[in-house]
């Protein structure tokens, strides 16, 4: 199924937490500031309902997104008040993909864990938590994964300041 078909099906089944979608478009020749938007389309989902959404699209026979390929986050810019949490789903049955984006306020980056739905999210969420300072409520093992346990700050945030030293090692 192409993205339009998937999106229509998601609306028909009233997928929990879905708020809309974003599709690529050419740039508007009359508006000089407009640069257009390229790449992949994605659907927007409420962060609090992401696990329910993942479960619903996995169970639906027309969509059958049984595999979660990736769960990651992104910090678009220092001015933006939201973080993005991006999930890539894959259907082995129907051979299609879906990108999901959740907007998570930087002021309170808390969302429920998706581990009960896809166990692969366990490590992805640990990585997001240490790199972006997101709290995944109910995560079975919320330790750092790539960074040392005593690392301060969220390195992939755009406003991250590099430390000057770490345990006596100069980082300059």
């Amino acid at each position: 199924m192409d993205f339009r078909g998937i999106y229509d099906r998601l609306r028909a089944m009233k997928a929990p937490g879905m708020t809309g979608c974003d599709e690529p478009r050419e740039k508007n020749p009359e508006d000089k500031k407009d640069k257009g938007r390229f790449g992949d389309p994605y659907v927007l989902v409420e962060p609090a309902l992401l696990p329910a959404f993942l479960d619903a699209v996995r169970m639906d026979a027309h969509l059958a997104f049984e595999m979660c390929i990736d769960l990651t986050a992104s910090d678009p810019s220092t001015d933006d008040e939201n973080l993005w949490v991006i999930v890539q789903l894959l259907s082995l049955t129907h051979k299609h993909r879906l990108s999901i984006k959740c907007l998570l306020p930087k002021a309170n980056p808390v969302m429920p864990t998706s581990v009960p739905v896809h166990r692969t999210c366990q490590w992805h969420e640990r990585e997001c938590a240490e790199m972006y300072g997101i709290t995944f409520e109910g995560h079975p093992d919320p330790r750092n994964i790539l960074l040392p346990d005593d690392w301060v700050g969220s390195p992939l945030r755009k406003d991250y300041e590099f430390p000057e030293e770490y345990h006596g090692i100069s980082c300059k």
Partner: peptide
């Protein structure tokens, strides 16, 4: 150009 994509 502005946008985002995933390629596997």
């Amino acid at each position: 150009p502005p946008g985002e994509c995933y390629v596997g």
